[in-house]
Computed example of a mutant assay.
Amino acid sequence: MKNIIFIFALFSSISLFKSQSITIDINDSELNKPTGYYRKDIHNILNQFEGTFLYTNGNTSLKIILVKKIKQYNSSYYEDLIIGEYQYIVNGVEKSNTLSNLDVVYNNQYAKHAIAGVSTIDNNFRGWKCLQCNSNEQRLDSKIIDRITDRHATIYMRKTVVNGQEVLQVKVTDILPDFENMNPPDFSLPKGEFTLIKQ
């Protein structure tokens, strides 16, 4: 009986080691990969998105802080990703501030942080075409959670330079419907396209 248990444990360990040893680039397809593989930012595309970025319009501002996380487990596989939190001020009044959650380590970093992304898009992506992008430029397809209303939306991000200043151009769109609420509150964060300056 001990031999059977030992052999089972040995094969389980080999199987686990084999699945964890599979590494793919974040731009590669995830189809037919075994549980436990690693979706790695091999070319460090995500690094450019790290930092503190600020959008201002009069007394209204949106500050976003983004951090790259390495080899985070999401209950199925490991991945490198960008996580972030924000502070939103409207007419001088703070409406939402999740910045204190930036260092919180969740079981699933992607699902729990206010901003998270790992998928890249090219300049022909139909959700946000970019005629001025370089042919090999990679932008980030992420999600953002409105902590006031718990509504989710897509936030596309492009890191670039405008007039010698590093900026993050974003588009907040595709607000997900709230199927549990017949009259859901409006998404309270800024929507549309705007530019945040790197601090």
Rank of each mutant, 00 (worst) to 15 (best):
F6S: 13
I82H: 02
M1H: 01
L140A: 01
I155D: 00
V161F: 09
H113S: 03
L46D: 06
Q109W: 08
Y88Q: 01
A9E: 04
G84Q: 06
T154G: 06
F53L: 02
M157V: 01
F53R: 00
N47G: 07
L189C: 14
R39H: 11
N97P: 01
I5N: 11
G58E: 03
Q109I: 10
H43E: 14
S188T: 15
K71Q: 01
P34H: 09
A111Q: 08
K191V: 09
Y77T: 09
L16K: 13
Q199N: 14
D80C: 08
L131C: 05
K198D: 01
S29T: 06
D141Q: 04
S142E: 04
V93I: 14
S29M: 08
Y86C: 10
G117H: 04
F53I: 00
S61P: 02
T60K: 12
N163S: 09
N59W: 07
H113R: 02
D28N: 15
V67G: 02
N108D: 11
I65E: 01
L176P: 13
A114G: 13
D25A: 13
H152Q: 13
K68A: 09
K198C: 00
E94S: 12
F6H: 13
S13G: 13
I5V: 15
G117V: 01
G192W: 05
F8L: 14
I70M: 15
I121F: 05
G192K: 09
Y37H: 15
V105K: 06
F179M: 14
K143L: 08
Q199L: 08
I4M: 10
Q132R: 04
R147W: 09
F17Q: 11
V105T: 06
T160L: 10
Q109R: 06
E193C: 04
L176V: 12
G164W: 00
G58Y: 02
S61Q: 03
S29R: 06
N101F: 06
Q109V: 10
V170M: 00
N183L: 14
M157P: 07
V104Y: 11
N134V: 13
Q199G: 03
K112T: 00
G58S: 08
K129Y: 05
L31Y: 14
V118M: 07
F49K: 02
C130L: 05
H43R: 11
K69D: 02
N32F: 15
I175N: 12
H113T: 00
S119E: 07
G192F: 09
I89N: 05
K95V: 04
V161G: 03
N44D: 15
I121K: 02
K40L: 13
Y110D: 05
P34Y: 05
E30R: 14
A114Q: 06
N136K: 10
I121G: 07
S15K: 12
D25I: 09
S19M: 07
I45F: 07
N47T: 04
L81Y: 04
S119T: 08
D150A: 14
T120M: 11
M182S: 12
F49W: 01
E180G: 07
N3A: 15
Y55P: 04
P185T: 14
H113G: 03
M1Q: 00
I70C: 12
S100P: 13
R139E: 04
Y86R: 02
K68S: 10
